[in-house]
Design a protein around this nucleic acid. Structure first.
Lengths: 205, 205
DNA sequence: CTCTTGTCATACCGTACGGTACGGTCATAT
DNA sequence: ATATGACCGTACCGTACGGTATGACAAGAG
């Protein structure tokens, strides 16, 4: 059958285009990214590119949409044998490891820069990313509270505060490109510090 | 005298150009800002503009330099009659009020977006801004500890954590343009929450 | 075989930009 | 009065971009 065959190829190629577009957008920013070089990197022609996406904005929207589907489990539930401190450290470590990545920061700069002119893009990203993340952490903290390990007023408030404790020192610095990617040791130290302070405030004594 | 007169005018005009350039850069971003519209907004000509700054990059560098000189006293020292909680709330309130401003966020997006390609810009900004701010807070916390109000391991760690507690929930959201400017009430609530948690962790009992 | 469909390559259009050049104007210093 | 120097307005250059059009080629369908 022709229809199904070409249909399949079309979706595959679309993904491939988005892969290349992502690369270029992250490296150059939206304004500086060029449809011509995207087509060239594809090994294809601009005609084909415009066959799949009707404009540069359209392509960028598709990129953002795909990026916002990202939702995986950095925040795994606590394991039975873990102490509360271990659980918090593990969460903070996984979170920092993800969020301070070069890739993640490039994406973040790209989105925020474009959110200036197009708030709906920033909103979609925020809801799928930071907002969802904080809610997930709140769920975990709720569980820990139910187990009698924590003494929280409001789990969501506490989740935001915990993430703030964990990331504040390095997130801005990394966003400003003022420091290179962190070592495992640095991440571990920061995660430890965040967990310690959080438990000093909210741990059941 | 001709020399001093023209010299004075030159500095004034330079500042005026930078004012206009700032406006355009913040509104359009570096890539989208146009030297022609800057000249037009000046009421002057491109020739004059290029008489003062030899290129768009040069103009942008001058803008960043001027912005990075920013250093004032959001973080005033504690007043004699204040309780520790009041001091912390006042600091957090002043900090949030400044950092969550539309203006500040536009500047932040602009700098970080450009820091991608030119790390020295991001570094200069980070050192003059977030870094310096955290150090200032650390000094204040040190003073409070000397007065017997706090029990800290490391004042700088604590300062980063305190600022993290205060800003994490709203900073990213504002950066993504996902929420509008905060009301006084919201800022007050967040400052209160941060101070409360901080004292739960580090307050002398 | 022919016809269709999607792709490639390339040339092209209009536009906008950064930056330069030039001629005219106006105020001031001598 | 005249010369100097800064400014304005505008036209211009080269370049690069987003986007379109065209023609050729390859592969699968009838």
């Amino acid at each position: 059958m022709l229809l199904t065959k070409t249909k399949l190829d079309r979706d595959q190629r679309r993904e491939l285009i988005l892969d290349v577009a992502q690369e270029v957008f992250l490296e150059e920013g939206f304004a500086n990214a060029s449809m011509s070089v995207i087509a060239a990197k594809l090994g294809g022609s601009k005609g084909t590119l415009y066959n799949y996406f009707k404009s540069k904005e359209d392509l960028f929207n598709a990129y953002v949409e795909r990026r916002c589907l990202w939702q995986d489990e950095i925040f795994a539930a606590p394991i039975g044998t873990e102490t509360p401190e271990e659980t918090l450290r593990r969460i903070a470590r996984a979170y920092l490891k993800r969020v301070l990545t070069d890739f993640n920061l490039k994406n973040f700069r790209l989105i925020t820069a474009e959110a200036e002119r197009r708030p709906e893009i920033g909103l979609a990203f925020y809801n799928a990313g930071p907002r969802r993340g904080a809610e997930r952490v709140a769920e975990l903290l709720s569980g820990m509270q139910a187990d009698g390990h924590l003494d929280l007023d409001d789990p969501l408030d506490a989740a935001h505060q915990f993430l703030g404790l964990a990331q504040n020192r390095y997130f801005k610095a990394r966003l400003c490109n003022a420091i290179p990617e962190l070592s495992e040791k640095q991440i571990e130290a920061e995660a430890k510090l965040a967990a310690k302070t959080f438990l000093r405030a909210f741990g059941k004594r």
